[in-house]
Nucleic acid binder design. Structure first.
Length: 240
DNA sequence: TAGGCCATCTGGTCCT
DNA sequence: AGGACCAGATGGCCTA
């Protein structure tokens, strides 16, 4: 039997199962399967070489074949679920043992909206950067723009409201806009910013090795807002 | 208890 | 021929 046949599932939902090596194959299903095989082999008698070779399979061979196919299919679905978990991990929503995980459909819909939101934010930031750099600060441009666009933090202020509007139900599970995923999995909203920024060392930018993340504010001193009031776009303006 | 979600089995189809 | 992919069927678990 395939080594994967013993892989665990988060749910024990199988019907009555045969013991031991055939534990993933229900007795009822196997009986049904045997009956079908008998009928089919009778119907197709002499039709094709393929059918003939199948008829020659013993009951045990058919059973083993079925187990093998089932095992592969289980493994395929487990891989798919792993990928789905990987997607959940990078989605901006509350995660933890006390939080019900997103359903598959919610995960996919949220991922779609998240990608759309990021694309929109990126476009907005590109516009802002081009506007600002159009009347640019020569010194700042020489240090930051050559590495890549250092998005103004004003864009980040737009980010969270955009996410909330796109996800709709993140904080108010009763509303359901067409853009919003089903509300069942949502408890609260966790912006992804902290996680993306946590490994960034602000000092790196000064010596030119800081890597700008698309959509992320530059943490270097040059790019910090001058004050906490108003928009931080001033860090990129010629007035700085 | 109904409905949502899920895991699993299964047969068909397509691809290598 | 064997494997991957897909969709339908089935039944279990959980929640409102």
């Amino acid at each position: 039997m395939d080594s994967d046949a013993g892989s665990t599932s988060s749910r024990a939902s199988s019907p009555e199962l045969v013991e031991g090596a055939t534990r993933f194959f229900s007795k009822k299903m196997f009986e049904t399967y045997k009956q079908k095989q008998t009928l089919q082999s009778g119907d197709r008698q002499g039709k094709t070489e393929k059918a003939k070779s199948k008829r020659e399979l013993t009951e045990d061979d058919l059973h083993d074949l079925r187990l093998k196919v089932n095992s592969r299919e289980r493994k395929r679905m487990h891989d798919l679920n792993q990928a789905m978990d990987g997607l959940r991990e990078v989605m901006p929503y509350a995660q933890g043992p006390s939080v019900r995980k997103l359903s598959k459909i919610s995960t996919l819909l949220l991922a779609r909206n998240y990608i759309l939101m990021l694309s929109n934010s990126l476009e907005e930031m590109k516009k802002l950067v081009s506007d600002v750099y159009g009347a640019g600060h020569p010194n700042h441009l020489s240090r930051c723009a050559s590495i890549g666009p250092a998005p103004p933090q004003v864009a980040m202020h737009h980010l969270t409201p955009s996410l909330h509007s796109l996800m709709g139900t993140a904080t108010s599970p009763t509303s359901n806009s067409p853009q919003s995923p089903p509300s069942s999995g949502f408890v609260s909203f966790r912006p992804p910013i902290q996680g993306l920024l946590k490994d960034v060392n602000p000092s790196l930018h000064i010596n030119g090795s800081y890597r700008h993340f698309p959509g992320m504010p530059c943490p270097c001193a040059l790019c910090q807002p001058l004050s906490t009031s108003g928009t931080s776009i001033s860090c990129l303006s010629v007035n700085k």
